[in-house]
Design a protein around this nucleic acid. Structure first.
Length: 586
RNA sequence: GGUCCCGUAGCUCAACUGGAUAGAGCAGCGGACUUCUAAUCCGCAGGUUGCAGGUUCGAGUCCUGCCGGGAUCGCCA
């Protein structure tokens, strides 16, 4: 159950009652009314701004309206106390008898606790990574990969119908470079001396197996061929090989997208989908031939003022109109990208989320403009920019040089610290803030390391379960009958406050999903873990608070139910983040 | 120069899309192990939310202008 949704319903019922007796007009705009936890728990369990929001419409001072509303809410059995505070907040204190129901619902729902239907089955497309298929993924791709994957899981858990997608840029100049590089490795595999890999090619050893594969497949058949003949063949094989590599890398992080969408397929099929898209825009008068002003500031050396095919991006909030054709007559990347998003739209997606790296920040406006234009405003595109990850090892920055090819690969990171810590740390910051990643710290077993801290809490819960068996050999968390438990025995302030914390989980999940911000889950888990560690240690000072009480089976059962609810909540949160919960630390 | 992101405690960051007295963790100081694993916990201290205006019942959050840091700037992807 979602506590806040529950009381939100009660508040609206109370408003209906006030409408019925004429205190409030019948046609209220109640959209911005909220039911939320007050910042200070001393104020109560649920607070609503209803009176302040409605004061104007009711033509009544907010506090007066609040008093009337409070009087109605006071009648509710689930509410023990209602107070009007400050400018007109209504603070609700939930009846003590209500809290056991929260735990019962956790124990009944288990792995589904926090799941909701707010997405109402709506289709969402989440596109992420989409790195050029020219080599293994490097550390720069990790954050976007994890973010996109976790966001997709979060949306799925919240009732959206999610499709995850990878846009394969297999049509640009990069893949031709890839083909030429692979061709060199092909000659090498046939015993030719190729010397050093020249500038402008991909030097990495990962192309050697591709060369060998080509040698086996074609023998010497491509050696005498003209580049125009061999390039498409080699390119196709090389791209396939690179995609295998990339999928393997992603699998190491437990990521597998539903769709790998080929950019080339837009133009290679029976119809040129890019041309079709441009035509659609042209019919709406959004395409014209014209000149662009040169960029402000320093003029590029090769600036050439020329007439070109432009999209009226400025009509949709962009700063300048954007080019669709290169000077050699082929489509720009942007043109293909419009067609790609148009294709998503035609596949039924009204909600699109793109996860991009920091270097694409300047691309957001034009893409959103394009989506607005091509879908006539029917689809929404949210672009999540993931800022840079700075690598450290024991506080020292890790040097990276992309030019010399000495970049840190995704695989190296995952192999060294494991997928769980990588995933958690990548989600322990807001996506648009830079992130520090320390190889040493994330594997440390100390409270500085949030991954460990949360995992330790989960493992600790399972340690309690193991210890319980020594006193009550048949007392297992999954054999508890939620209905028969005497949960009202959980009456200490410490226990109650952690129950309240648990009750917030569904709300945290919902708001993270709607805001497209999975990091909120990580922070919540860290807090919940802290509360649990704290409660654990209280048992040392006050033995009557220990989870296991030899002399009182009912009390022990109730507390095991509480611990189990905590563990279940931690596990559900971790699973959304794609992190495997650990049951034993040693 | 244009555009986008960021600026919150000494440091790293939260703040539930506008709510009440801005919260955590590190670092600092002082405490708690015959233990349900102290791999943890408790307490103290720490703030003009970069600056100046504006919007309203109410602003770290929205708007305008500055200051500082980062990213990006026809045809690369």
């Amino acid at each position: 159950m979602n506590l806040y949704a529950h009381f939100s319903d009660r508040i609206f019922a109370a408003l209906d009652a006030l409408k019925a007796d004429g205190t409030l007009p019948g046609d209220l705009d109640a959209r911005s009314i909220t039911a939320e936890p007050p910042r200070d728990p001393a104020h109560g369990d649920v607070a609503t701004n209803a009176a302040m929001v409605l004061a104007k419409q009711a033509k009544m001072p907010p506090r007066d309206l609040a008093e009337k509303l409070a009087a109605v809410l006071g009648e509710d059995d689930d509410i023990s106390n209602v107070e009007v505070a400050g400018p007109g907040f209504i603070n609700i204190r939930v009846a003590p008898a209500f809290w056991p129901r929260v735990l019962m619902s956790v124990l009944q729902q288990r792995g589904d606790f926090g799941r909701s239907g707010i997405g109402a089955g709506e289709a969402v497309n989440v596109e992420y990574v989409s790195a050029n298929p020219t080599g293994p993924l490097h550390v720069g791709h990790v954050r976007g990969a994890v973010f996109g994957d976790a966001l997709a899981a979060l949306l799925e858990f919240s009732g959206f119908n999610v499709t995850t997608e990878y846009y394969v840029n297999d049509a640009g100049a990069q893949v031709d470079v890839l083909a030429r590089s692979a061709y060199m490795r092909y000659r090498e595999a046939l015993g030719h001396d190729i010397g050093d890999i020249p500038e402008g090619h991909y030097p990495g050893d990962y192309l050697k197996p591709v060369g060998e594969m080509l040698a086996e497949k074609y023998g010497e058949g491509l050696l005498e061929a003209d580049e125009t003949e061999w390039l498409p063949l080699v390119r196709a094989d090389a791209i396939d090989a690179m995609l295998m590599l990339i999928k393997d890398d992603l699998a190491a992080l437990d990521i597998g997208q539903d769709v790998f969408f080929s950019e080339r397929s837009l133009i290679d099929g029976a119809t040129d989908k890019v041309a079709v898209t441009i035509d659609e825009l042209r019919e709406r008068g959004l395409i014209y031939e014209g000149r662009l002003p040169p960029p402000k500031g320093r003029l590029p050396d090769d600036w050439e003022d020329r007439e070109q095919t432009l999209f009226r991006a400025t009509e949709f909030g962009d700063d300048v109109d954007r080019a669709l054709m290169k000077s050699d007559g082929t489509y720009t990347y942007f043109a293909s990208d419009i067609a790609y998003h148009n294709d998503k739209f035609k596949r039924g997606f009204r909600n699109m989320i793109d996860v991009w790296g920091a270097d694409h920040g300047g691309y957001v406006k034009r893409m959103q403009a394009a989506v607005k234009a091509v879908t006539a405003g029917e689809a929404a595109l949210d672009v999540k920019i993931c800022q840079l990850v700075r690598l450290f090892r024991g506080g020292e920055p890790v040097k990276m040089s992309k030019r010399s090819g000495e970049f840190v690969t995704l695989r190296e990171v995952v192999d060294e610290v494991g997928p769980g810590p990588v995933r958690f740390m990548m989600l322990y910051r807001k996506n648009d803030a830079p992130l520090d990643f320390d190889f040493v710290k994330v594997t440390e077993q100390s409270r500085d390391n949030p991954v460990f801290y949360v995992q330790y809490a989960h493992a600790r819960a399972y340690s309690v379960f193991r210890n319980t068996l020594e006193v009550f050999p048949d007392l297992k968390p999954d054999s508890l009958d939620p209905v028969k438990l005497k949960l009202s025995l959980l009456e200490s302030e410490e226990e109650l406050s952690i129950v309240k914390k648990i009750s917030q989980f569904p709300r945290v999940v919902e708001s993270s999903a709607l805001a497209h911000e999975p990091h909120r889950i990580s922070f919540y888990l860290h807090e919940l873990a802290g509360d649990f560690h704290s409660l654990w240690n209280r048992g040392k000072e006050l033995p009557q608070l220990r989870f296991i009480n030899d002399a009182d089976r009912d009390l022990t059962e109730a507390r095991i139910a509480l611990v189990s609810s905590i563990a279940e909540t931690l596990a559900n949160g971790l699973r959304i983040l794609g992190v495997q919960p650990i049951r034993e630390m040693r």
